[in-house]
Lab assay of single mutants.
Amino acid sequence: GSPLAQQIKNIHSFIHQAKAAGRMDEVRTLQENLHQLMHEYFQQ
């Protein structure tokens, strides 16, 4: 897949890990990143 698709997959797993660790501030930051990446992805 594209590097962007790979990045989106990575962030999904980072979010999963951050949630499991209870780091909600990190989850929020990652979700904002994910949102931006998704936006770029669909602009392609």
Rank of each mutant, 00 (worst) to 15 (best):
Q7W: 10
A5T: 08
L34C: 04
P3S: 14
Q43T: 11
L4N: 02
F14C: 05
G22M: 04
R23S: 05
Q43G: 11
Q44I: 11
K9L: 09
D25S: 04
Q6Y: 05
L37K: 03
R28V: 09
I8H: 00
E32W: 09
H12V: 15
G1T: 12
I15L: 08
D25V: 03
Q44T: 12
S2G: 11
E40D: 09
K19C: 11
H39I: 14
Q36N: 09
R23M: 08
Q17F: 05
F14A: 15
Q17M: 10
L34K: 00
Q43S: 11
A21P: 01
K9P: 01
A5N: 06
D25G: 03
A20E: 12
A5Q: 09
F14H: 12
V27S: 01
D25A: 04
E40M: 12
T29C: 09
A5K: 09
H16P: 01
Q6A: 09
Q36G: 04
T29S: 10
P3Y: 14
K19Q: 13
H12I: 15
Q44E: 09
T29H: 10
E40T: 06
L37M: 05
R28Q: 10
Q7R: 08
E40C: 07
F42N: 08
F14K: 15
K19I: 15
E40S: 07
Y41K: 03
S13P: 01
S2I: 14
G1N: 13
Q36K: 13
Q44A: 11
Q36S: 08
I11L: 15
E26K: 05
A20D: 07
E40I: 10
F42E: 07
Y41G: 02
A21F: 04
M38I: 12
R28Y: 09
G22P: 00
Q6S: 06
E32D: 08
R23G: 02
E40L: 13
L4T: 04
H12F: 14
S13G: 10
Y41T: 03
N33W: 15
I8E: 00
F14S: 13
T29M: 13
I8M: 04
L37T: 01
Q7C: 04
I8Q: 00
V27T: 02
R23Y: 05
P3A: 14
F42W: 13
T29P: 02
T29K: 15
L37Y: 02
N10T: 12
R28G: 05
L37H: 01
K19G: 03
M24I: 08
E40W: 10
N10W: 12
R28T: 07
E26T: 05
A18T: 01
R28F: 07
K19N: 06
M24T: 08
E32L: 10
Q44R: 07
E32H: 10
S13I: 15
Y41R: 03
Q6T: 10
L30R: 01
G22W: 04
I15A: 01
A18Y: 04
I8W: 03
G22E: 04
I11T: 04
L37S: 01
L4H: 03
S2Q: 10
H39Y: 12
H16G: 06
I15P: 00
Y41A: 05
I11D: 00
H35I: 13
Q6V: 11
E40K: 09
R28L: 10
A20W: 05
E26Q: 06
R23H: 08
Q7P: 01
K19D: 04
A21C: 09
F42A: 10
M24G: 05
L34A: 02
H39P: 01
P3I: 12
D25N: 05
H35G: 05
I15K: 01
A5C: 15
I15M: 04
K9D: 05
E26D: 08
N10H: 08
I11G: 00
L34W: 02
M24K: 05
H12N: 07
S13Y: 14
I15H: 00
R28W: 07
I8T: 01
A21L: 08
R28I: 10
A18V: 03
A18Q: 02
I11F: 06
G1F: 05
A5Y: 13
E32Y: 08
P3Q: 13
A20S: 07
Q17W: 06
Q6M: 09
L34V: 02
H39N: 11
R28A: 13
H35V: 13
A20R: 07
H12L: 15
L37R: 02
Q7S: 05
M24A: 08
G1H: 12
M24C: 09
H39G: 06
F14P: 00
L37D: 00
K9E: 07
Q44Y: 11
L4C: 04
D25M: 03
I8F: 03
E32V: 07
H39E: 11
E40Y: 07
Q44K: 10
M38N: 02
F42D: 06
I11N: 01
H16K: 14
